[in-house]
Amino acid sequence: MRTSKKYIVAGLFLILLIVLFSCELLLGSVYIPAQKVFSVLTNNEHQNEVWNTIILQSRLPRALGAIIAGASLSVSGLLMQVLFRNPLASPYILGISSGAGLGVALITLSSASIGFAFAPNGLSLVASAMLGALLVFSIVFFISLRVKDIMTLLVAGVLIGSIANAIVNIIQLHSSALTVKTFVLWTLASLDQLEMADIKLLYIICPLAMIGSFLLSKQLNTLLMGEKYARSVGVNIMLSRILIILFSGILAASITAFCGPIGFIGIMVPHIVRIIFRTNHHKLLILFSVLIGSCTLLAADLMAHYFITSVSLPINAVTALIGIPVILWLLLGKKDISKTI
């Protein structure tokens, strides 16, 4: 695809992003006219408190959350796929979601079984998920400082993730049905519980990590030719690897802590970007992943809420049910998945 054509397609996705974002704000069980939504957003109207609350505390954080989560997970997955040269690598390949899961399991399940006088709320869930993710992430990070071979790190990441899962299983077996349900609900992931304070935090952390990743484009490009080649053109492999893991980990951990382990986006979007734009320059891949990742998660969230009007669906089920046929269709039309990296 020629460069100019790439930007035209990117422009179309930008329009799609705006349309989807508007849908998130306009649609809902309570009908609010478009111009009222607009005036609430621009602070012109304060008469209708209910509308204010619905838009500013429910629809807007969800829409903004879908954008940042979609973008972050896509960039995070892209980084992991390049680092491990593996088309199946996801933001969670180094055990971050398992770590977050362990944190949540400890707080929801053990608080009840130990008789801890403490009911898990939104904040404690986020904090425990964050702590769990950071715990696993730091272990993997320190391993990455010691191992020379990148595949050893991949195996170590998967193994540590499995340990976290094993502990979760033990806790689950000894918990009540109700607390197990709380945990299972967390694993389904959702954007509904996001509040504006969460959004503000995510919009500070995630863009910083994305800019960091963008500045690594040069190193990421050379890694496509293999670590040895990258070294021969003067790239510091250890430093690049550490930064890639750090940025990818920050993105995945912060989104997982606030939204739960949203699946498939991180694997799927980088492939969609490569197939559509047919480039392997990471300056473009990162930009387009941000754009298409945001669109994908917005679309998935809209479908989760409005595909069947009376019932909302878990977002992970939607990303899997809709996303996987899409990527299969793209792949069957083009080439096999290993050939897109």
Partner: peptide, 21 residues
């Protein structure tokens, strides 16, 4: 490494060949 990269170019025996490039 940066100075070295301007003095020596190296080609592996089985270089990786990336796609879409």
């Amino acid at each position: 490494p940066a100075t070295r990269a301007r003095l020596i170019s190296y080609l592996e025996s089985t270089p990786l060949s990336p796609q879409n490039i």
